[in-house]
Amino acid sequence: MSYFGDIAKAVSTISTGMKITFAHFKNVGKNKGTFTTQYPKETLTAPAFSRQQLHNNIDDCIGCKKCAMACPVDCIDIVTVKAGADELSDCSDGTKRRLHLTVYDIDMAKCMFCGLCTYPCPTHCLTINDDHNFIKFERSELKYKFSAYSPEDVVRIEKEAAEREVIAKAEKAAKAKAKAEAAAKKKAAEVAKAKAEAEKVETAPEPEKTEPKAKTEPVAKTQVEQVVEVKKEEVKLPVAEAKENEAKAEEIKPTEDASKEANSDNETKES
């Protein structure tokens, strides 16, 4: 009868299920017993090459901003200030550091853990590691500041950089002035030289002229005169070209300096 068959089936299936749960109940505390990790007290190691947290070894960072360029979500914020000569030590791989990193912030709340920022890093100072324990209570706390400088340091560094810049500007101006003077002198000297050469050229053919005179050959005379005229033209042309080149160079140089100054101004303003 299916009525009692159903009862038998119910009893057997229920006992099977109860056996299974009791087996699990018995296994508590054994190795295969529980799968819970008591998280803050015991942690699992993340899989190898897992991307969890960005870390910047600030002593090796040269402030090239390649990581910030690579970041798809713009979570890396860098501000640099030019350093004085020999003010900073070299990186561990020997690369020269020329910039103070007054700000190097990574906002892990924005970070999408792609790891693309670590690839272009020339000194391999920016790494993404498997440390996944960075729980914070405020979103702002997820902004990791890697810069080694305190706010007072930053103020000092900026002040020093500004002073250096003023000095550099003055030096540059002086240099430019000296250069301009030197260029003018050179020009004058060259002009004089060219004149002298031209005179030389003009005077030099005279002995040649005398020789044909001695021969007194009218056909030859005319030939010599033609040669002299050609030579005059040849001498004059290079001098003119040199003059023109110098003028051009003087025009270009000041603009280059100006653009450089403008760049450095921008950098200081950012900081």
Binding site: T21, F22, H24, F25, N27, V28, G33, T34, F35, T36, Q38
Partner: peptide, 13 residues
């Protein structure tokens, strides 16, 4: 506790 043990968990700890 019993439900946790039967589901291979630890329950309140």
């Amino acid at each position: 506790k019993i439900s946790a043990f039967m589901q291979d968990r630890l329950g309140p700890m």
